[in-house]
Nucleic acid binder design. Sequence first.
RNA 1: CGGGGCGUAGCACAGCCUGGUAGUGCGCACGGUUUGGGACCGUGAGGCCGCAAGUUCGAAUCUUGCCGCCCCGACCA
Length: 489
Amino acid sequence: MAKALPKRSENYSEWYNEIVKRADLAENSAVRGCMVIKPYGFAIWEKMQRALDDMFKATGHQNAYFPLFVPKSFLEKEEEHAEGFAKECAVVTHYRLKTDGKGGLMVDPNAKLDEELIIRPTSETVIWNAYKGWIQSWRDLPLLINQWCNIVRWEMRTRIFLRTAEFLWQEGHTAHATEQEAVEETERMLGVYADFVENWMALPVIQGVKTPGERFAGAVETYCIEGLMQDGKALQCGTSHFLGQNFSKSFDVQFVNKENQLEYPWATSWGVSTRLMGALIMGHSDDNGLVLPPKLAPFQVVIVPIHKSPEDLAKISEKVDPIINELKAAGVSVKYDDNDNQRSGWKFAEYELRGVPIRLGLGMRDLEAGTVEVARRDTLSKESRPIDGIVDHIKILLGEIQQNIYNKAMAFREANTFPVDTWDGFKEQIEKGGFILAHWDGTAETEEKIKNETKATIRCIPLNSIEESGTCVYSGKESAKRVLFARAY
RNA sequence: CGGGGCGUAGCACAGCCUGGUAGUGCGCACGGUUUGGGACCGUGAGGCCGCAAGUUCGAAUCUUGCCGCCCCGACCA
């Protein structure tokens, strides 16, 4: 019998780790805190990349690539930025090894770098150093650049996909002639992220602004999208920063405006990472394994033959071939698993674990009846349907599944979002999990105290929050709107 | 960095207390019987028992040191 997954209700983090492993998404590597993303997991990431990249291009951005190494002197230039990242940087101090005479290798003490190189934790500094040479005139603006790369943040404690020492991401870095234009860009890209996470990943998110305490180091304003995971914890799914003129000033980048005056350009940066893989897993999956939205599944349909003899298999394959061709022609990705290593029952369980949205089962009974068994991963329901018209049915079904898992996630979020008006109520609810909408007096002191007493942080000040006067849930002082609290990953 | 757990076959683990030829299940290879929700029988391959030193006639097992990983906390996308 199957080795069942741990249940979400019993041990959520073990359930998560097991899904990652058993669905063959990724594994821990020999290097502390770093993961190996396996082909099935990487295929999902590639689909995310493709969709996002298309969206970036559609909003006028171009891809480029900047170095992995950041000279220490660059990182120092923007003070807050330097402070914020200093304690999680990997540093290269030497450029050569030599044999140690005992069959091993040692760092060559004669090969010390004059200036240490930091493995990029983010690229604002190298990029703005380069922009100095790219920007002279208002005609060079806006400069809309994105890069896909890996970065390193030396985390004390890591969790696969959610927080790894090395991770993959994209980082957009733009320069604008006016403050307003840069703010618009920051908001536009937040919207792109929200659009992607909701429409591709099928996860509803709250768009908002971070409090000063939660702001990106070096930013004037940080916008974010926040998702709610099934264990009631929040996950920041993407951030978009308005950087003001902090980096243009630090790197002395200026442009000549239409009036022939020198000005500092206004900057933004924005990123999403392989952490989204974690959001995808925790947002939809169940005790049977992964549940993938059709738009991001490596293959949307798997066809499993059910046969007793090679002759039967040949007959089934003959029937399956045109279905595969028709599906492909319709833009549906499909895998036909005629592998005879495993039997059909094993395959059913396996593809369920891997979250394939639709499974077609085809046996001799179906050949006689002209039917096929259609199983949905999201509802675990099965029905027998005529082969005629099956491709049209699947096209519709894929859309339904995409919508259904979004609706489920939305219903979950709604059922787990609570307006709270008293401190006792706050403390009680935070233990149960979920999003809490509560009034806050706007001070860092209160934010800090709430965090220390309950481990809840202000995830964001939602963009769509309505003006509603009330009193701070902690201090009792006046407040104009509710903010979003939760315990977070 | 604290607290806990664990390193034995590709994977999951037993054996260790009480030293004496390294085992079980899954997976893998081959043969056969099977096949509508994780099949069964038979045969077989596969191990520096995390690394190093020590104790001993003899160490997976005892001692010391080191390394690594996972989980729980403080920091973070």
